[in-house]
Amino acid sequence: MSFRATPRRSAVANAIYGLLNPIPFGCFVAALIFDVIYAHTAVVLWGKSAAWLIALGLVFAIIPRLINLVQVWITFRRFATGAEKLDFWLNLFAIVAAIFNAFVHSRDAYAVIPEGVWLSACTVILLAIGHIAIAVQRSESGVLVHE
């Protein structure tokens, strides 16, 4: 419970968010790399690995996305910056693309290509823009870049 005039985000929620939020981005970046390798080599190891990375990325995204949803639109609504709102929507679209991508990656063998590569790229670009937006906003407000 905070008694300050400005509402503060919960330290616990922030800790969980800070711990889990980077994991999906790492998974999706690796998935994109593996998809590109699979598209070039047709060695099934890469395609299957990308499928796991996308599935795992989605699972790890559940808790940080829910925390972000609550913080941006409920508990911190009046104080959420434009960059934070943009980041929320970019993440949502990225997750939608990744869900499509998980289904595309359930196809057999080379049927994953090319849609799988495009959706992986889409997911990574959306998340990357969100990360950049937040980083730029924080450098402007003089806060450490670390989330």
């Binding site: 709102k85 929507w89 949502l92 679209f93 939608v96 869900i99 499509f100 289904f103």
Partner: peptide, 20 residues
């Protein structure tokens, strides 16, 4: 913002519809 919300809701609904 409500326009964006509608677009996003549509995107989510489309995902569910297509996946099914």
């Amino acid at each position: 913002m409500s326009k964006i919300t509608h677009v996003c809701a549509l995107a989510v609904a489309l995902t569910l519809a297509l996946s099914g």
